[in-house]
Design a binder for these strands. Structure first.
Lengths: 143, 143
DNA sequence: TTCTCTGCAAACGCTTTGCACGGAT
DNA sequence: ATCCGTGCAAAGCGTTTGCAGAGAA
């Protein structure tokens, strides 16, 4: 958790506004996502949230994330095969994955080409842009 | 297979030039990839190539693709979780995945932002850009 | 009661690993 | 004999499914 900007109350209001029953599990999962910029995997969420909710199961996390995605509160990001990461930041932004430490960073700014609704006659619904390399922390550590 | 432009001989020369022992399996796998623009998954390759090589195993395909990636003959693309696709087209290009039929198309042209070697102080090694939507074939079919 | 939410356990599917056979040198 | 390539079988791991118990209305 990076900087605690959203309270449980904020999160509850948000869920209610989106027409989602704010159960404790859902509140805590969304709170975690909204206060995180690290694009956690299900396993990361599970290991962290288990401390606060010892009975929490991964099934509930999957169920909840599916619900949030269906209701468009979050998006899933695919950078690596074998793991999906989740992001509550819905603004169009790029991602950077460090090949050393594995962390995923948001890259602000509009890097997205100004293509219209179609490209090569295909209808575009989503655009995804990500980079891989060595993050500034790993770079300075090995320098 | 889309348009037969590379012969087995071409592929053999390419393997030798890259310092890879051109076994029959390796030849056929690379031939398939070089003559395909459909970014096949391992399963697609397996089902297709099994016809020509009945004893072929998926293990060999995985071994071979790992080798090709290590030697930088091909790249792996991650658009969906749960499946890796492979591409022998090493030029920087974008991809488009159809949400209906699931096919992945190459999108030619330089859609990549002209960022330098670093972004937000991170060292960039790879850039990936892909879109999702409805491809022209599915769009015309349902129109 | 009825409907929803939760979570254990098992199933699934793609990928990786262990290991042994076979061909080439 | 040695080395490399191949491929069967089993294990691994993230995710999904089946289903039953708990909780709210």
């Amino acid at each position: 958790m990076d900087e605690q900007s959203f309270s449980l109350g904020d999160v509850k209001d948000y869920l209610l506004q989106k027409g989602i029953n704010p159960s404790y599990q859902r509140l805590k999962i969304l709170e975690y996502l909204m206060n995180s910029t690290s694009h956690p995997t299900v396993d990361t969420m599970y290991r962290t949230l288990s401390k606060a909710i010892p009975t929490l199961s991964k099934t509930t996390i999957y169920n909840t994330l599916d619900l949030f995605m269906k209701k468009e509160l979050i998006t899933g990001l695919t950078i690596e095969e074998n793991e999906v990461r989740y992001d509550a930041n819905l603004s169009q932004h790029a991602h950077f994955k460090c090949l050393k430490c594995g962390r995923v960073f948001d890259i602000p700014g509009d890097f997205f080409p100004q293509i219209g609704n179609t490209v090569c006659e295909h209808i575009v619904k989503e655009k995804h842009f990500y980079m891989k390399g060595i993050c500034k922390y790993c770079a300075s550590r090995s320098a």
